[in-house]
């Protein structure tokens, strides 16, 4: 499903963020990318949804080379990848419904279809009874759930998650992880970047250190 072959990412004047990354993630896998802050976890995720391009090396998703995708093709790749950002990237003055509906609006789905799918997803993240509330009135945990809802609304083939429990208490963190595992159970390849090794349990973990895979 995901393959990185000798991937390097260097910024500006020789600041290396990732170095010789070779990684294969199978379809339906639940994988953690872990390491200290600045180890290159977020950069690796950004390479996968084409927010960054590798300095060298090859990245394949479903055997398609995404490192050399034309700019005009990137939006179509992103529609198949759900991303949960560390800072959520929610529109705080919009409602929960509006935020979760954005990917479907981009696809041009009819309004009735959007309403139905948003309601279904909000049930999964247990926010269906509050969908007209503004995001700004929600707690961090609830905002994280909205971000999860937006990321999975389009049944993505890959779900990328950046620090899912970073600012959450352990109870809410567990709840979020449970939702992510249930999404993965339905076949979505899930890649989670975290510095929190306690989340990993018995899943596969790729450890990054100063931009290199160490285990």
């Amino acid at each position: 499903m995901i393959q990185l072959i000798s991937v390097y990412k260097t910024y500006g004047q020789g600041i290396t963020s990732l170095s010789n990354i070779n990684l294969a993630i199978k379809k339906g896998e639940f994988v953690f990318i872990t390491g200290a802050s600045g180890s290159g976890k977020t950069t690796l995720l950004k390479l996968l949804y084409c927010e960054e391009r590798p300095t060298s090396g090859q990245i394949l998703i479903n055997r398609q080379a995404v490192d050399s995708l034309k700019i005009s093709e990137i939006p179509y790749l992103r529609r198949r990848i759900g991303v949960i950002f560390q800072d959520f990237k929610l529109l705080s003055e919009r409602t929960i419904f509006d935020n979760v509906a954005i990917p479907l609006e981009v696809l041009g789905l009819p309004r009735e279809e959007i309403v139905k799918r948003v309601q279904d997803v909000l049930k999964k993240v247990r926010l269906h009874h509050r969908m007209e509330e503004k995001v700004s009135s929600l707690s961090s945990g609830e905002q994280q759930k909205v971000a999860v809802g937006r990321a999975i609304i389009n049944d993505p083939m890959i779900l990328l998650v950046d620090e899912p429990t970073g600012s959450l208490d352990s109870g809410t963190g567990d709840e979020i992880m449970e939702i992510l595992r249930s999404v993965n159970a339905r076949g979505t390849t899930t890649v989670i970047a975290t510095h929190n090794r306690f989340l990993i349990k018995d899943s596969r973990a790729v450890v990054l250190e100063k931009g290199r895979i160490v285990s």
Partner: peptide, 10 residues
Amino acid sequence: EVMRLVGATP
């Protein structure tokens, strides 16, 4: 930014 990241074309 959000629209761009969820796959909206320019």
